[in-house]
Design a protein around this nucleic acid. Sequence first.
DNA 1: CCTCATTGTTGAACGCGTTCAGATTTCTCT
DNA 2: AGAGAAATCTGAACGCGTTCAACAATGAGG
Lengths: 271, 271
Amino acid sequence: MRPGGVRRLRTPATAVPGPTVSTVTASRRDPGPSPRGEQTRELIVATALRLFRERGYEATTMRAIAAEAQVSVGNAYYYFPSKQHLVQAYYGQSQGAHAAAARPCLETESAFQARLHGVLLARVDTMQDEKGFAVDFFRFAADPQSPLSPFSKESATAREMSIGLYEEVVHGAKGLKVPAELQESLPELLWLYQMGVVLFWIHDTSPASAKTYALVERTVPLVGKLVHLTRYRLLRGVLSDLLDLLRELGPIQGSAPGRLTDRERRSARSE
Amino acid sequence: MRPGGVRRLRTPATAVPGPTVSTVTASRRDPGPSPRGEQTRELIVATALRLFRERGYEATTMRAIAAEAQVSVGNAYYYFPSKQHLVQAYYGQSQGAHAAAARPCLETESAFQARLHGVLLARVDTMQDEKGFAVDFFRFAADPQSPLSPFSKESATAREMSIGLYEEVVHGAKGLKVPAELQESLPELLWLYQMGVVLFWIHDTSPASAKTYALVERTVPLVGKLVHLTRYRLLRGVLSDLLDLLRELGPIQGSAPGRLTDRERRSARSE
DNA sequence: CCTCATTGTTGAACGCGTTCAGATTTCTCT
DNA sequence: AGAGAAATCTGAACGCGTTCAACAATGAGG
Protein backbone atom coordinates (compact mmCIF):
# COMPACT_ATOMS: atom_id res chain seq x y z
CA MET A 1 0.00 0.00 0.00
CA ARG A 2 2.92 2.28 -0.70
CA PRO A 3 3.02 2.45 -4.47
CA GLY A 4 5.85 4.40 -5.86
CA GLY A 5 7.99 4.26 -2.76
CA VAL A 6 11.74 4.73 -2.91
CA ARG A 7 13.10 5.00 -6.44
CA ARG A 8 16.48 4.42 -7.86
CA LEU A 9 18.40 7.52 -8.83
CA ARG A 10 17.57 7.97 -12.44
CA THR A 11 20.19 10.52 -13.32
CA PRO A 12 22.77 10.60 -10.56
CA ALA A 13 25.14 13.52 -10.13
CA THR A 14 27.62 11.81 -12.37
CA ALA A 15 25.19 11.49 -15.21
CA VAL A 16 26.17 12.70 -18.62
CA PRO A 17 24.87 16.26 -19.02
CA GLY A 18 24.09 16.02 -22.67
CA PRO A 19 21.17 18.05 -23.95
CA THR A 20 19.73 18.57 -20.50
CA VAL A 21 19.50 22.26 -21.29
CA SER A 22 15.92 23.32 -20.71
CA THR A 23 12.93 21.15 -21.31
CA VAL A 24 13.82 20.65 -24.93
CA THR A 25 10.44 21.46 -26.40
CA ALA A 26 12.57 22.67 -29.28
CA SER A 27 10.99 21.83 -32.62
CA ARG A 28 7.24 22.03 -32.98
CA ARG A 29 5.45 19.78 -30.51
CA ASP A 30 7.58 16.68 -30.80
CA PRO A 31 5.30 13.62 -30.87
CA GLY A 32 8.27 11.37 -30.19
CA PRO A 33 8.95 9.76 -26.85
CA SER A 34 10.23 11.91 -24.02
CA PRO A 35 13.87 11.27 -23.17
CA ARG A 36 12.90 10.05 -19.72
CA GLY A 37 10.77 7.21 -20.97
CA GLU A 38 13.29 6.36 -23.63
CA GLN A 39 15.90 5.93 -20.95
CA THR A 40 13.80 3.40 -19.09
CA ARG A 41 12.90 1.65 -22.29
CA GLU A 42 16.51 1.19 -23.22
CA LEU A 43 17.43 0.08 -19.74
CA ILE A 44 14.80 -2.62 -19.91
CA VAL A 45 15.68 -3.83 -23.36
CA ALA A 46 19.39 -3.87 -22.58
CA THR A 47 18.81 -5.84 -19.41
CA ALA A 48 16.52 -8.25 -21.23
CA LEU A 49 19.02 -8.92 -23.99
CA ARG A 50 21.78 -9.45 -21.48
CA LEU A 51 19.75 -11.98 -19.53
CA PHE A 52 18.58 -13.69 -22.72
CA ARG A 53 22.19 -14.19 -23.69
CA GLU A 54 23.18 -15.36 -20.22
CA ARG A 55 20.31 -17.71 -19.51
CA GLY A 56 18.42 -18.30 -22.72
CA TYR A 57 15.01 -17.03 -23.68
CA GLU A 58 12.71 -19.33 -21.75
CA ALA A 59 14.81 -19.36 -18.60
CA THR A 60 14.68 -15.58 -18.44
CA THR A 61 11.49 -14.51 -16.70
CA MET A 62 9.87 -11.12 -16.97
CA ARG A 63 10.20 -10.85 -13.20
CA ALA A 64 13.93 -11.43 -13.47
CA ILE A 65 14.27 -8.79 -16.15
CA ALA A 66 12.31 -6.30 -14.10
CA ALA A 67 14.25 -7.06 -10.93
CA GLU A 68 17.60 -6.81 -12.68
CA ALA A 69 16.63 -3.51 -14.24
CA GLN A 70 15.27 -2.33 -10.89
CA VAL A 71 11.87 -1.73 -12.38
CA SER A 72 8.45 -3.23 -11.77
CA VAL A 73 7.05 -5.93 -14.03
CA GLY A 74 4.18 -3.69 -14.99
CA ASN A 75 6.64 -1.06 -16.10
CA ALA A 76 8.24 -3.43 -18.56
CA TYR A 77 4.80 -4.09 -19.98
CA TYR A 78 4.23 -0.36 -20.26
CA TYR A 79 6.94 -0.26 -22.90
CA PHE A 80 6.71 -3.73 -24.41
CA PRO A 81 3.36 -5.39 -24.96
CA SER A 82 4.82 -8.85 -24.54
CA LYS A 83 7.99 -10.75 -23.82
CA GLN A 84 8.35 -11.49 -27.51
CA HIS A 85 8.43 -7.81 -28.35
CA LEU A 86 11.61 -7.55 -26.35
CA VAL A 87 13.17 -9.81 -28.90
CA GLN A 88 12.62 -7.37 -31.72
CA ALA A 89 15.52 -5.38 -30.38
CA TYR A 90 17.68 -8.43 -30.91
CA TYR A 91 16.45 -8.53 -34.45
CA GLY A 92 17.80 -5.09 -35.08
CA GLN A 93 21.14 -5.95 -33.51
CA SER A 94 21.41 -9.14 -35.50
CA GLN A 95 20.49 -7.34 -38.69
CA GLY A 96 23.18 -4.77 -38.00
CA ALA A 97 25.73 -7.48 -37.31
CA HIS A 98 24.90 -9.13 -40.61
CA ALA A 99 25.25 -5.91 -42.53
CA ALA A 100 28.61 -5.22 -40.88
CA ALA A 101 29.88 -8.71 -41.51
CA ALA A 102 28.80 -8.54 -45.14
CA ARG A 103 30.48 -5.19 -45.74
CA PRO A 104 34.02 -6.41 -46.51
CA CYS A 105 32.80 -8.85 -49.11
CA LEU A 106 30.58 -6.28 -50.78
CA GLU A 107 33.53 -3.93 -51.05
CA THR A 108 36.08 -6.38 -52.38
CA GLU A 109 34.29 -9.00 -54.42
CA SER A 110 32.88 -8.15 -57.80
CA ALA A 111 31.59 -11.44 -59.17
CA PHE A 112 27.91 -12.10 -58.54
CA GLN A 113 28.37 -15.54 -57.10
CA ALA A 114 31.17 -14.49 -54.80
CA ARG A 115 29.13 -11.57 -53.52
CA LEU A 116 26.11 -13.74 -52.91
CA HIS A 117 28.25 -16.29 -51.18
CA GLY A 118 29.85 -13.73 -48.91
CA VAL A 119 26.61 -12.08 -47.88
CA LEU A 120 24.83 -15.35 -47.22
CA LEU A 121 27.76 -16.73 -45.31
CA ALA A 122 27.85 -13.57 -43.23
CA ARG A 123 24.23 -14.18 -42.33
CA VAL A 124 24.84 -17.72 -41.17
CA ASP A 125 28.06 -16.82 -39.37
CA THR A 126 26.51 -14.04 -37.35
CA MET A 127 23.62 -16.26 -36.34
CA GLN A 128 25.89 -19.17 -35.58
CA ASP A 129 27.89 -17.01 -33.20
CA GLU A 130 25.01 -17.16 -30.78
CA LYS A 131 23.38 -20.38 -31.80
CA GLY A 132 21.32 -22.06 -29.17
CA PHE A 133 19.90 -18.75 -28.18
CA ALA A 134 19.48 -17.21 -31.59
CA VAL A 135 17.42 -20.25 -32.60
CA ASP A 136 14.89 -19.26 -30.00
CA PHE A 137 14.47 -15.96 -31.73
CA PHE A 138 14.40 -17.02 -35.34
CA ARG A 139 11.99 -19.69 -34.22
CA PHE A 140 9.49 -16.94 -33.55
CA ALA A 141 10.24 -15.59 -36.97
CA ALA A 142 8.88 -18.78 -38.46
CA ASP A 143 5.64 -18.30 -36.56
CA PRO A 144 3.19 -16.38 -38.74
CA GLN A 145 1.12 -15.27 -35.77
CA SER A 146 4.10 -13.70 -34.11
CA PRO A 147 4.81 -9.98 -34.51
CA LEU A 148 8.34 -11.12 -35.24
CA SER A 149 7.43 -12.77 -38.50
CA PRO A 150 9.65 -11.31 -41.21
CA PHE A 151 6.52 -10.61 -43.21
CA SER A 152 4.82 -8.62 -40.48
CA LYS A 153 4.39 -4.88 -40.46
CA GLU A 154 6.55 -4.56 -37.37
CA SER A 155 9.47 -6.17 -39.16
CA ALA A 156 9.17 -3.98 -42.24
CA THR A 157 12.29 -1.88 -41.67
CA ALA A 158 14.46 -4.86 -40.76
CA ARG A 159 13.18 -6.68 -43.83
CA GLU A 160 13.96 -3.78 -46.12
CA MET A 161 17.44 -3.44 -44.72
CA SER A 162 17.96 -7.10 -45.34
CA ILE A 163 16.68 -6.95 -48.90
CA GLY A 164 18.89 -3.91 -49.37
CA LEU A 165 21.94 -6.09 -48.86
CA TYR A 166 20.89 -8.24 -51.77
CA GLU A 167 20.28 -5.19 -53.89
CA GLU A 168 23.89 -4.39 -53.30
CA VAL A 169 24.82 -7.92 -54.22
CA VAL A 170 23.06 -7.57 -57.55
CA HIS A 171 23.84 -3.99 -58.46
CA GLY A 172 27.47 -4.23 -57.52
CA ALA A 173 28.05 -7.42 -59.48
CA LYS A 174 30.23 -6.84 -62.51
CA GLY A 175 29.38 -8.68 -65.65
CA LEU A 176 26.04 -9.89 -64.36
CA LYS A 177 23.54 -10.02 -67.18
CA VAL A 178 20.00 -10.92 -66.33
CA PRO A 179 16.78 -10.36 -68.21
CA ALA A 180 15.30 -6.96 -67.49
CA GLU A 181 12.20 -8.46 -65.96
CA LEU A 182 14.30 -10.40 -63.46
CA GLN A 183 16.56 -7.50 -62.59
CA GLU A 184 13.97 -5.86 -60.41
CA SER A 185 12.82 -8.92 -58.50
CA LEU A 186 16.15 -10.64 -58.08
CA PRO A 187 17.06 -9.03 -54.75
CA GLU A 188 13.78 -10.07 -53.20
CA LEU A 189 14.16 -13.56 -54.62
CA LEU A 190 17.61 -13.80 -53.11
CA TRP A 191 16.23 -12.61 -49.81
CA LEU A 192 13.63 -15.36 -49.95
CA TYR A 193 16.45 -17.75 -50.66
CA GLN A 194 18.17 -16.49 -47.52
CA MET A 195 14.96 -17.01 -45.57
CA GLY A 196 14.99 -20.60 -46.74
CA VAL A 197 18.54 -21.02 -45.52
CA VAL A 198 17.62 -19.51 -42.16
CA LEU A 199 14.63 -21.81 -41.95
CA PHE A 200 16.93 -24.73 -42.63
CA TRP A 201 19.35 -23.47 -40.01
CA ILE A 202 16.82 -23.37 -37.22
CA HIS A 203 15.98 -26.99 -37.98
CA ASP A 204 19.59 -27.98 -38.35
CA THR A 205 20.89 -29.84 -35.31
CA SER A 206 24.13 -31.08 -36.86
CA PRO A 207 27.31 -30.14 -34.97
CA ALA A 208 28.28 -26.54 -35.60
CA SER A 209 25.41 -26.38 -38.08
CA ALA A 210 27.66 -28.14 -40.55
CA LYS A 211 24.75 -29.08 -42.76
CA THR A 212 23.63 -25.49 -43.12
CA TYR A 213 27.12 -24.55 -44.23
CA ALA A 214 27.06 -27.43 -46.67
CA LEU A 215 23.71 -26.19 -47.92
CA VAL A 216 25.19 -22.76 -48.56
CA GLU A 217 28.26 -24.09 -50.31
CA ARG A 218 26.18 -26.33 -52.53
CA THR A 219 23.29 -24.04 -53.34
CA VAL A 220 25.12 -20.80 -54.00
CA PRO A 221 26.73 -22.18 -57.18
CA LEU A 222 23.40 -23.71 -58.05
CA VAL A 223 21.63 -20.39 -57.75
CA GLY A 224 24.44 -18.83 -59.69
CA LYS A 225 23.97 -21.31 -62.49
CA LEU A 226 20.23 -20.85 -62.52
CA VAL A 227 20.52 -17.08 -62.72
CA HIS A 228 23.01 -17.52 -65.51
CA LEU A 229 20.68 -19.91 -67.33
CA THR A 230 17.86 -17.40 -67.35
CA ARG A 231 19.46 -15.87 -70.44
CA TYR A 232 18.61 -18.97 -72.43
CA ARG A 233 15.30 -19.64 -74.05
CA LEU A 234 14.68 -22.91 -72.33
CA LEU A 235 14.27 -21.38 -68.90
CA ARG A 236 12.58 -18.20 -69.98
CA GLY A 237 9.14 -19.72 -69.81
CA VAL A 238 9.65 -21.01 -66.33
CA LEU A 239 11.13 -17.71 -65.32
CA SER A 240 8.21 -15.60 -66.49
CA ASP A 241 5.83 -17.96 -64.77
CA LEU A 242 7.73 -17.51 -61.58
CA LEU A 243 7.86 -13.75 -61.83
CA ASP A 244 4.19 -13.54 -62.73
CA LEU A 245 3.47 -15.57 -59.66
CA LEU A 246 5.49 -13.28 -57.44
CA ARG A 247 3.66 -10.24 -58.77
CA GLU A 248 0.31 -11.91 -58.36
CA LEU A 249 0.91 -13.02 -54.83
CA GLY A 250 2.46 -9.80 -53.73
CA PRO A 251 2.75 -9.55 -49.98
CA ILE A 252 1.63 -12.77 -48.37
CA GLN A 253 0.21 -11.05 -45.36
CA GLY A 254 -1.83 -7.93 -44.90
CA SER A 255 -4.90 -8.62 -47.00
CA ALA A 256 -7.39 -10.07 -44.59
CA PRO A 257 -6.98 -10.59 -40.88
CA GLY A 258 -8.13 -14.17 -40.63
CA ARG A 259 -9.04 -15.32 -37.16
CA LEU A 260 -7.22 -13.21 -34.65
CA THR A 261 -5.90 -14.62 -31.44
CA ASP A 262 -6.75 -12.87 -28.22
CA ARG A 263 -3.26 -11.58 -28.07
CA GLU A 264 -3.37 -10.09 -31.53
CA ARG A 265 -6.62 -8.40 -30.73
CA ARG A 266 -5.03 -6.86 -27.70
CA SER A 267 -1.91 -5.78 -29.51
CA ALA A 268 -3.97 -4.27 -32.29
CA ARG A 269 -4.94 -1.30 -30.17
CA SER A 270 -1.31 -0.26 -29.85
CA GLU A 271 -1.16 1.00 -33.37
CA MET B 1 -8.83 -34.33 0.95
CA ARG B 2 -11.01 -36.94 -0.70
CA PRO B 3 -8.88 -38.23 -3.55
CA GLY B 4 -10.57 -40.76 -5.71
CA GLY B 5 -14.03 -40.06 -4.40
CA VAL B 6 -17.07 -40.76 -6.51
CA ARG B 7 -16.23 -41.90 -10.00
CA ARG B 8 -18.18 -41.80 -13.18
CA LEU B 9 -19.45 -45.16 -14.39
CA ARG B 10 -16.71 -46.35 -16.61
CA THR B 11 -18.57 -49.08 -18.44
CA PRO B 12 -22.26 -48.64 -17.81
CA ALA B 13 -24.72 -51.46 -18.32
CA THR B 14 -25.33 -50.31 -21.85
CA ALA B 15 -21.69 -50.51 -22.83
CA VAL B 16 -20.70 -52.44 -25.92
CA PRO B 17 -19.84 -55.98 -24.83
CA GLY B 18 -17.08 -56.54 -27.36
CA PRO B 19 -14.19 -58.69 -26.24
CA THR B 20 -15.03 -58.33 -22.55
CA VAL B 21 -14.74 -62.09 -22.26
CA SER B 22 -12.25 -62.77 -19.51
CA THR B 23 -9.33 -60.54 -18.72
CA VAL B 24 -7.92 -60.88 -22.17
CA THR B 25 -4.36 -61.79 -21.23
CA ALA B 26 -4.57 -63.71 -24.48
CA SER B 27 -1.33 -63.48 -26.46
CA ARG B 28 1.99 -63.68 -24.65
CA ARG B 29 2.44 -60.94 -22.08
CA ASP B 30 1.15 -57.98 -24.00
CA PRO B 31 3.37 -54.99 -23.28
CA GLY B 32 0.74 -52.71 -24.78
CA PRO B 33 -1.54 -50.49 -22.76
CA SER B 34 -4.26 -52.11 -20.71
CA PRO B 35 -7.71 -51.60 -22.20
CA ARG B 36 -8.73 -49.61 -19.16
CA GLY B 37 -6.10 -46.97 -19.62
CA GLU B 38 -6.65 -46.90 -23.35
CA GLN B 39 -10.27 -46.07 -22.74
CA THR B 40 -9.41 -43.03 -20.65
CA ARG B 41 -6.75 -42.01 -23.10
CA GLU B 42 -9.17 -42.00 -25.96
CA LEU B 43 -11.80 -40.21 -23.97
CA ILE B 44 -9.34 -37.44 -23.22
CA VAL B 45 -8.05 -37.08 -26.74
CA ALA B 46 -11.55 -37.11 -28.21
CA THR B 47 -12.71 -34.47 -25.78
CA ALA B 48 -9.65 -32.37 -26.49
CA LEU B 49 -10.10 -32.49 -30.25
CA ARG B 50 -13.77 -31.61 -29.88
CA LEU B 51 -13.00 -28.59 -27.73
CA PHE B 52 -10.15 -27.53 -30.00
CA ARG B 53 -12.56 -27.47 -32.88
CA GLU B 54 -15.24 -25.68 -30.91
CA ARG B 55 -13.11 -23.04 -29.24
CA GLY B 56 -9.72 -23.03 -30.91
CA TYR B 57 -6.44 -24.24 -29.48
CA GLU B 58 -5.46 -21.42 -27.15
CA ALA B 59 -8.96 -20.87 -25.81
CA THR B 60 -9.18 -24.50 -24.79
CA THR B 61 -7.60 -24.95 -21.38
CA MET B 62 -6.34 -28.18 -19.96
CA ARG B 63 -8.74 -27.65 -17.08
CA ALA B 64 -11.64 -27.41 -19.49
CA ILE B 65 -10.60 -30.58 -21.28
CA ALA B 66 -10.29 -32.42 -17.99
CA ALA B 67 -13.62 -31.11 -16.72
CA GLU B 68 -15.43 -31.95 -19.92
CA ALA B 69 -13.97 -35.44 -19.93
CA GLN B 70 -14.82 -35.75 -16.22
CA VAL B 71 -11.23 -36.41 -15.36
CA SER B 72 -8.65 -34.59 -13.30
CA VAL B 73 -6.02 -32.38 -14.90
CA GLY B 74 -3.30 -34.58 -13.58
CA ASN B 75 -4.87 -37.54 -15.25
CA ALA B 76 -4.64 -35.91 -18.64
CA TYR B 77 -0.95 -35.35 -18.00
CA TYR B 78 -0.60 -39.01 -17.08
CA TYR B 79 -1.35 -39.87 -20.69
CA PHE B 80 -0.07 -36.81 -22.53
CA PRO B 81 3.14 -35.08 -21.49
CA SER B 82 1.91 -31.73 -22.72
CA LYS B 83 -0.97 -29.93 -24.33
CA GLN B 84 0.83 -30.02 -27.65
CA HIS B 85 0.99 -33.79 -27.58
CA LEU B 86 -2.79 -33.83 -27.70
CA VAL B 87 -2.49 -32.26 -31.11
CA GLN B 88 -0.62 -35.19 -32.56
CA ALA B 89 -3.92 -37.03 -32.72
CA TYR B 90 -5.20 -34.30 -34.97
CA TYR B 91 -2.19 -34.83 -37.17
CA GLY B 92 -3.19 -38.41 -37.76
CA GLN B 93 -6.76 -37.44 -38.54
CA SER B 94 -5.68 -34.74 -40.93
CA GLN B 95 -3.26 -37.06 -42.66
CA GLY B 96 -6.02 -39.62 -43.08
CA ALA B 97 -8.36 -36.99 -44.48
CA HIS B 98 -5.74 -35.97 -47.00
CA ALA B 99 -5.17 -39.52 -48.13
CA ALA B 100 -8.90 -40.09 -48.49
CA ALA B 101 -9.40 -36.86 -50.42
CA ALA B 102 -6.52 -37.69 -52.72
CA ARG B 103 -7.77 -41.20 -53.48
CA PRO B 104 -10.23 -40.38 -56.30
CA CYS B 105 -7.62 -38.41 -58.21
CA LEU B 106 -5.00 -41.13 -57.83
CA GLU B 107 -7.45 -43.66 -59.21
CA THR B 108 -8.69 -41.69 -62.18
CA GLU B 109 -5.90 -39.41 -63.36
CA SER B 110 -2.94 -40.82 -65.18
CA ALA B 111 -0.90 -37.79 -66.21
CA PHE B 112 1.83 -36.80 -63.80
CA GLN B 113 0.87 -33.16 -63.56
CA ALA B 114 -2.81 -33.93 -63.04
CA ARG B 115 -1.99 -36.39 -60.29
CA LEU B 116 0.32 -33.97 -58.56
CA HIS B 117 -2.27 -31.26 -58.85
CA GLY B 118 -5.00 -33.43 -57.40
CA VAL B 119 -2.98 -34.62 -54.44
CA LEU B 120 -1.67 -31.20 -53.58
CA LEU B 121 -5.09 -29.65 -53.91
CA ALA B 122 -6.49 -32.34 -51.66
CA ARG B 123 -3.95 -31.34 -49.04
CA VAL B 124 -4.87 -27.69 -49.16
CA ASP B 125 -8.61 -28.41 -49.29
CA THR B 126 -8.60 -30.64 -46.25
CA MET B 127 -6.62 -28.08 -44.28
CA GLN B 128 -8.75 -25.23 -45.49
CA ASP B 129 -11.87 -26.98 -44.25
CA GLU B 130 -10.82 -26.19 -40.73
CA LYS B 131 -8.68 -23.14 -41.28
CA GLY B 132 -8.31 -20.84 -38.34
CA PHE B 133 -7.89 -23.80 -36.11
CA ALA B 134 -5.74 -25.95 -38.34
CA VAL B 135 -3.29 -23.07 -38.62
CA ASP B 136 -2.69 -23.34 -34.91
CA PHE B 137 -1.60 -26.89 -35.42
CA PHE B 138 0.53 -26.57 -38.50
CA ARG B 139 2.07 -23.60 -36.80
CA PHE B 140 3.62 -25.99 -34.32
CA ALA B 141 4.79 -28.06 -37.22
CA ALA B 142 6.93 -25.15 -38.32
CA ASP B 143 8.54 -25.03 -34.89
CA PRO B 144 11.66 -27.20 -34.92
CA GLN B 145 11.67 -27.57 -31.15
CA SER B 146 8.20 -28.96 -31.13
CA PRO B 147 7.60 -32.72 -31.09
CA LEU B 148 5.13 -31.97 -33.87
CA SER B 149 7.79 -30.93 -36.34
CA PRO B 150 7.35 -33.03 -39.47
CA PHE B 151 11.02 -33.92 -39.23
CA SER B 152 10.81 -35.23 -35.68
CA LYS B 153 10.93 -38.84 -34.67
CA GLU B 154 7.39 -38.69 -33.31
CA SER B 155 6.08 -37.66 -36.71
CA ALA B 156 7.91 -40.37 -38.61
CA THR B 157 4.89 -42.50 -39.47
CA ALA B 158 2.76 -39.55 -40.52
CA ARG B 159 5.62 -38.29 -42.64
CA GLU B 160 6.07 -41.62 -44.35
CA MET B 161 2.38 -41.89 -45.10
CA SER B 162 2.51 -38.45 -46.62
CA ILE B 163 5.54 -39.23 -48.76
CA GLY B 164 3.78 -42.42 -49.75
CA LEU B 165 1.10 -40.39 -51.47
CA TYR B 166 3.72 -38.80 -53.67
CA GLU B 167 5.23 -42.15 -54.43
CA GLU B 168 1.84 -43.05 -55.80
CA VAL B 169 1.78 -39.83 -57.77
CA VAL B 170 5.07 -40.72 -59.42
CA HIS B 171 4.72 -44.46 -59.88
CA GLY B 172 1.19 -44.28 -61.19
CA ALA B 173 1.97 -41.56 -63.70
CA LYS B 174 1.79 -42.86 -67.25
CA GLY B 175 4.35 -41.63 -69.70
CA LEU B 176 6.48 -39.97 -67.06
CA LYS B 177 10.13 -40.22 -67.97
CA VAL B 178 12.64 -38.94 -65.51
CA PRO B 179 16.32 -39.67 -65.14
CA ALA B 180 16.98 -42.77 -63.06
CA GLU B 181 18.78 -40.80 -60.41
CA LEU B 182 15.76 -38.56 -59.94
CA GLN B 183 13.24 -41.38 -59.90
CA GLU B 184 14.10 -42.38 -56.40
CA SER B 185 14.18 -38.95 -54.82
CA LEU B 186 11.28 -37.39 -56.63
CA PRO B 187 8.58 -38.36 -54.13
CA GLU B 188 10.50 -36.83 -51.27
CA LEU B 189 11.17 -33.74 -53.32
CA LEU B 190 7.48 -33.41 -54.05
CA TRP B 191 6.74 -33.84 -50.38
CA LEU B 192 9.15 -31.02 -49.59
CA TYR B 193 7.33 -28.99 -52.20
CA GLN B 194 4.09 -29.72 -50.36
CA MET B 195 5.71 -28.62 -47.11
CA GLY B 196 6.55 -25.36 -48.79
CA VAL B 197 2.95 -24.91 -49.85
CA VAL B 198 1.77 -25.67 -46.32
CA LEU B 199 4.27 -23.19 -44.97
CA PHE B 200 2.91 -20.61 -47.36
CA TRP B 201 -0.63 -21.49 -46.34
CA ILE B 202 -0.07 -20.86 -42.66
CA HIS B 203 1.27 -17.43 -43.54
CA ASP B 204 -1.48 -16.74 -46.02
CA THR B 205 -4.12 -14.41 -44.65
CA SER B 206 -5.89 -13.71 -47.92
CA PRO B 207 -9.63 -14.46 -47.96
CA ALA B 208 -10.32 -18.16 -48.30
CA SER B 209 -6.55 -18.62 -48.69
CA ALA B 210 -6.97 -17.54 -52.29
CA LYS B 211 -3.26 -16.87 -52.65
CA THR B 212 -2.35 -20.37 -51.62
CA TYR B 213 -4.69 -21.75 -54.25
CA ALA B 214 -3.12 -19.40 -56.76
CA LEU B 215 0.27 -20.64 -55.69
CA VAL B 216 -0.78 -24.22 -56.33
CA GLU B 217 -2.30 -23.44 -59.73
CA ARG B 218 0.81 -21.58 -60.81
CA THR B 219 3.51 -23.78 -59.40
CA VAL B 220 2.16 -27.20 -60.31
CA PRO B 221 2.65 -26.58 -64.06
CA LEU B 222 6.00 -25.04 -63.21
CA VAL B 223 7.10 -28.13 -61.34
CA GLY B 224 5.74 -30.21 -64.17
CA LYS B 225 7.83 -28.28 -66.66
CA LEU B 226 10.93 -28.52 -64.52
CA VAL B 227 10.57 -32.26 -64.10
CA HIS B 228 10.09 -32.53 -67.82
CA LEU B 229 13.15 -30.41 -68.48
CA THR B 230 15.37 -32.69 -66.45
CA ARG B 231 15.66 -34.88 -69.53
CA TYR B 232 17.63 -32.18 -71.28
CA ARG B 233 21.31 -31.64 -70.91
CA LEU B 234 21.06 -28.06 -69.83
CA LEU B 235 19.45 -28.86 -66.51
CA ARG B 236 21.25 -32.09 -65.82
CA GLY B 237 24.12 -30.36 -64.08
CA VAL B 238 21.85 -28.45 -61.79
CA LEU B 239 19.85 -31.56 -61.12
CA SER B 240 22.78 -33.69 -60.07
CA ASP B 241 23.98 -30.89 -57.83
CA LEU B 242 20.61 -30.82 -56.19
CA LEU B 243 20.42 -34.56 -55.73
CA ASP B 244 23.94 -34.73 -54.39
CA LEU B 245 22.97 -32.09 -51.90
CA LEU B 246 19.93 -34.02 -50.77
CA ARG B 247 22.01 -37.14 -50.26
CA GLU B 248 24.68 -35.24 -48.40
CA LEU B 249 22.30 -33.50 -46.07
CA GLY B 250 20.19 -36.52 -45.37
CA PRO B 251 17.85 -36.07 -42.46
CA ILE B 252 18.08 -32.54 -41.17
CA GLN B 253 17.50 -33.53 -37.59
CA GLY B 254 18.74 -36.34 -35.43
CA SER B 255 22.49 -35.87 -35.51
CA ALA B 256 23.24 -33.76 -32.48
CA PRO B 257 20.89 -32.51 -29.81
CA GLY B 258 21.94 -28.89 -29.70
CA ARG B 259 20.86 -27.02 -26.62
CA LEU B 260 17.80 -28.66 -25.14
CA THR B 261 15.01 -26.71 -23.58
CA ASP B 262 13.85 -27.68 -20.12
CA ARG B 263 10.76 -29.16 -21.65
CA GLU B 264 12.69 -31.32 -24.06
CA ARG B 265 14.86 -32.56 -21.29
CA ARG B 266 11.78 -33.54 -19.36
CA SER B 267 10.11 -35.21 -22.31
CA ALA B 268 13.27 -37.12 -23.11
CA ARG B 269 12.78 -39.48 -20.26
CA SER B 270 9.48 -40.73 -21.72
CA GLU B 271 11.26 -42.72 -24.40
C1' DC C 1 -9.27 -64.04 1.28
C1' DC C 2 -5.23 -61.41 1.73
C1' DT C 3 -0.87 -59.08 0.26
C1' DC C 4 1.48 -56.03 -2.77
C1' DA C 5 3.36 -54.17 -6.98
C1' DT C 6 1.50 -51.91 -10.96
C1' DT C 7 -1.38 -48.84 -12.94
C1' DG C 8 -4.46 -45.22 -12.74
C1' DT C 9 -6.21 -40.94 -10.59
C1' DT C 10 -6.57 -36.82 -7.74
C1' DG C 11 -6.41 -31.69 -6.77
C1' DA C 12 -3.56 -28.45 -4.50
C1' DA C 13 0.44 -25.93 -5.59
C1' DC C 14 4.15 -23.72 -8.43
C1' DG C 15 5.99 -20.49 -11.63
C1' DC C 16 5.07 -18.27 -15.55
C1' DG C 17 3.30 -14.24 -18.76
C1' DT C 18 0.14 -10.83 -18.46
C1' DT C 19 -3.38 -7.35 -16.64
C1' DC C 20 -5.22 -3.72 -13.91
C1' DA C 21 -6.62 -0.15 -10.73
C1' DG C 22 -4.53 3.04 -8.88
C1' DA C 23 -0.37 5.81 -7.29
C1' DT C 24 3.38 9.01 -8.49
C1' DT C 25 6.08 11.94 -11.36
C1' DT C 26 6.59 15.14 -15.05
C1' DC C 27 4.91 18.42 -18.29
C1' DT C 28 1.97 22.41 -19.72
C1' DC C 29 -0.47 26.30 -19.30
C1' DT C 30 -1.99 30.28 -16.76
C1' DA D 1 3.50 29.02 -8.07
C1' DG D 2 -0.26 26.01 -8.83
C1' DA D 3 -3.71 23.15 -11.04
C1' DG D 4 -4.74 19.85 -14.17
C1' DA D 5 -3.44 16.59 -17.80
C1' DA D 6 -0.43 13.29 -19.50
C1' DA D 7 3.18 10.14 -18.91
C1' DT D 8 5.29 6.89 -16.02
C1' DC D 9 5.33 3.42 -12.60
C1' DT D 10 3.73 -0.03 -9.03
C1' DG D 11 2.75 -4.79 -7.23
C1' DA D 12 -1.03 -7.68 -6.21
C1' DA D 13 -3.92 -10.65 -8.74
C1' DC D 14 -5.51 -13.68 -12.61
C1' DG D 15 -5.48 -17.63 -15.50
C1' DC D 16 -2.68 -20.60 -17.67
C1' DG D 17 0.30 -25.09 -18.39
C1' DT D 18 2.52 -28.13 -15.64
C1' DT D 19 4.19 -30.88 -11.47
C1' DC D 20 3.81 -33.64 -7.47
C1' DA D 21 2.96 -36.30 -3.34
C1' DA D 22 -0.36 -38.95 -2.08
C1' DC D 23 -4.18 -41.99 -2.68
C1' DA D 24 -7.35 -45.72 -4.99
C1' DA D 25 -8.28 -49.51 -8.14
C1' DT D 26 -6.66 -53.54 -10.27
C1' DG D 27 -5.01 -58.12 -10.72
C1' DA D 28 -1.54 -61.81 -9.94
C1' DG D 29 0.49 -64.99 -6.45
C1' DG D 30 0.18 -67.09 -2.08
